[in-house]
Write a protein that binds this DNA or RNA. Structure first.
Lengths: 236, 236
DNA sequence: ATGTGATTTGTACTATCGTACAAAAGATCA
DNA sequence: TGATCTTTTGTACGATAGTACAAATCACAT
């Protein structure tokens, strides 16, 4: 019952609701869910605390809406890029294109607004680390399909690698992705200023290069695990 | 002024202080810093909330002590393993040994107690994601030295790869490490039950295999970046 | 056993949290 | 203009946060 019908569709008034969403997204992504109060968000958005309750009912509802806003467009964008990547003929190039289709939307915003982006990916990373319940549910519902699609596509490019290995390596990719967005300054520090962790384009290239090689690594021979040293179970 | 001198050194009384530390470590690693209250910790440790204040003064002090307890032994253990790895003759085997020296202490506890372990690594992952101030300071002080040592060692095994690339790939390794400990269930889910994300030994092997390959990937040719598609800067 | 210092308990204080709700303000159309 | 709906504001409430502190308890050397 929000909008009836003005002369123009979806009028362009300075929307408070959007400002709250943007502020919450930024604050959650930077400091986590629990460290940020509704009052912090309202203040950052130039709004009244009660206004947050009005638009989103609860703090969880606000987080939920952030996810809702992003998930659809982001997965759509990934699907499009994945479909394009699958049409690449050369197997090596195709694998690289698939990885790129997964990584790029996580680092850059899509068309107009809300097509993914670094801030939303960072938010997901933080929520994942905090074990946030709301986030966990949405991720299981929304992201597993996309992840499976990517895993299957990679598996087709590397038929000799067991699916289990592909899953592990995809997992590592996601971890690297998350961590790169959470702590970009560490790259700058460890490289003594030679690399810029905040340079998205460079981060993407580095990640694609490294990840493609990781996927192409020989399979872990599960049948003959005795070959490797049992360094994992040293004492405890 | 805690201990004077009993008949035996470091008596083995059922220490409340240790119980609080253990409970806090577990709770922080699972739920983050801000989501856990001092009362939660005290309850989990079977202690009184006031007892936490007595031993650690503040909640930050408690976190600080957790780090203090682990950092020394963990980095020592890594140094030992790294020194041993550097003595490996074959370059390929040496690289694998170095990576293993970095990964193994993060997944498994050291001798007796407090030598690292999955729980502490997970704690660091969560604190990193939350942008915790206390953790950030300690990490910059304590871990960068160790990280540089590993980066240098890897660089020596791969002299033809620029140091910047090594830094990025180390960064990805740490991200993969963190994420594997934060969300092991996702591996199980995505592999449809075929892989167990909580199996540390298997996780280590997968990680070592993938990471060694990533390090060995050809260098990113910074001089000729025009060759690659500028997919990163699509629209926004 | 007894006194002394270390520890644990119980309780209380203040600040801040998420949320509710009534009143004010703004917008929209007959 | 006045009626009606949406949005914003202001304020308040109960719950819980971190921490302080006095009293009770424990451990142990004398």
């Amino acid at each position: 019952m929000a909008r009836k019908s003005t002369s123009k569709e979806t009028a362009r008034k300075p929307n408070m609701r959007e400002a709250i969403l943007a502020a919450a997204e930024e604050l959650f992504a930077t400091n986590g869910f629990n460290a940020v109060s509704v009052r912090d968000i309202a203040h950052a958005a130039g709004a009244n605390p009660g206004s947050v309750t009005y638009h989103f009912k609860t703090k969880d509802g606000l987080l939920l809406e952030i996810y809702r806003r992003h998930c659809g467009p982001m997965n759509l964008r990934r699907s499009e890029l994945l479909a394009a990547a699958k049409r690449v003929r050369d197997l090596q190039d195709r694998l690289e294109a698939i990885v790129r289709a997964y990584v790029v939307p996580a680092f850059t915003s899509g068309s107009d607004l809300a097509g993914g982006g670094a801030r939303f990916t960072r938010l997901r990373a933080v929520m994942s680390a905090e074990g946030n319940e709301v986030a966990r549910k949405i991720i299981a519902q929304t992201f597993d399909d996309t992840s499976h699609a990517f895993i299957d596509a990679i598996h087709e490019s590397l038929p000799h690698i067991p699916r289990t290995d592909i899953v592990w390596r995809s997992h590592f990719l996601l971890g690297a992705l998350y961590y790169s967005l959470v702590t970009p300054d560490r790259v700058s520090r460890l490289s003594r200023g030679e690399a810029d962790g905040s340079d998205a384009a460079n981060a993407i290239e580095q990640m694609v290069q490294a990840t493609v090689a990781a996927f192409q690594a020989p399979a872990l021979d599960q049948a003959a695990p005795a070959r490797r040293r049992a360094a994992a179970s040293s004492k405890t």
